[in-house]
Design a protein around this nucleic acid. Sequence first.
DNA 1: GGTCGCAATCTTGTTCTACAATATTGTCCG
DNA 2: CGGACAATATTGTAGAACAAGATTGCGACC
Lengths: 225, 225
Amino acid sequence: MSMPQTSRRSVVDELARRLSEGVRDSRFMPGQRLVEAELTRELGVSRGSLREAFRRLASDGLIEITPHKGAMVRRLTFTEAIELFQVRIELEALAARLAASVMADHLARAAFLAAIEPIRRQVPRLSADAYIEENRAFHDAILAGSGNAQLIGISRRFQLPLILSQVRAAISLEAMAASVAEHRGIAEAILSGNEEKATGAVRQHLTRAMALLEAVPKSCFAEIR
Amino acid sequence: MSMPQTSRRSVVDELARRLSEGVRDSRFMPGQRLVEAELTRELGVSRGSLREAFRRLASDGLIEITPHKGAMVRRLTFTEAIELFQVRIELEALAARLAASVMADHLARAAFLAAIEPIRRQVPRLSADAYIEENRAFHDAILAGSGNAQLIGISRRFQLPLILSQVRAAISLEAMAASVAEHRGIAEAILSGNEEKATGAVRQHLTRAMALLEAVPKSCFAEIR
DNA sequence: GGTCGCAATCTTGTTCTACAATATTGTCCG
DNA sequence: CGGACAATATTGTAGAACAAGATTGCGACC
């Protein structure tokens, strides 16, 4: 993973990791309330540490904290999802451009190749879970390939996983297959070092994905507040 | 000891606001250590609340928390500043495009006009402080004009104020004047609803600003870690 | 029967104390 | 002068305690 750090992580860091993991793979469902007393008991940490972790997740946009009501897993409105996609398109296009621009460097190229290796080795049967994981890995690979640490850090906030987990049921097999095919095209463009082509492919890919949101049942999204 | 009357916001929110304000206007200098005991005494809050506020500021990229050393005001390296600029160019170009696209709407147009009013009314004599403030206001106006709430929230993380405060001494009067002039051009492009022109102007403006960083003395930046 | 008000209860917000873990500083000795 | 090691300072985490705001349930009233 991309967090090699020392083995000595603070309790809060570990907590944040476990909680966000739980959100990402739907162990905590969007809208679900995270009760402090419950979690401190289950996880064996103090309230203070848990609350610090909450702040961090909230700052990452994974949960929401409302005064005197506490923390709940964020549930995006349709508008929020679209807005996130708009931003994501730009950031990922930048990442693809930067990644393409460094593909001449052998080390960077090798790292990128290794990161997308699981993608190129096409998975024959696709499930929603497998697709979500593939998708996450692919987009992470592009970000990592960009070499821009700030971009990587900021992109965490976009919570594509959150969007995907909300609309998971509505993803068709055809859409998943098409998406994977586009991923390959993007990877090739990056590897060829063609910056224009790479950014164009990413833009097209994500714009198409964003358009798919329109077709998703409104019940997948939170009400407007 | 004093009972702060009716803080509608939570103590932690208020704390985070005050601290980030302190960082932005250099009451806390980059690199300065923020000692918990000291601040709890000065600000009259508990360690727990202070630590929660720290987490939030760290998540916003304003301070850094290192295990067992505590919090210190973030001091950017040259590389980090460049990376932030790269991302910023894309996001602000997006904001300008979105803003331009909604200028047909009378309400949005009026709001944008009001927001940039202080900018158009040119300040005759420029100081570094005045420029930094003008710059911040202009940037905020474009973001607000975009109407994309996620974009606005995410852009907080970019800490242009942090970059500017680090290189403040190295900003020449000519550069400030040129920057203000470019701001006007950008505002006009947005108001005319010309999306291409608006994004182009923003890109050019920020690319130029980024290039200026190269000329700034290295002593303005933190060492590589 | 429905619903409005109010009290009982739950949950979060905040502070305080305590102690463990780690970093920093100061001192002594070679 | 420099390195080992003790003393000190600071952060990391836990837990209790109480206040403040939300939620729920119950009973009175229409």
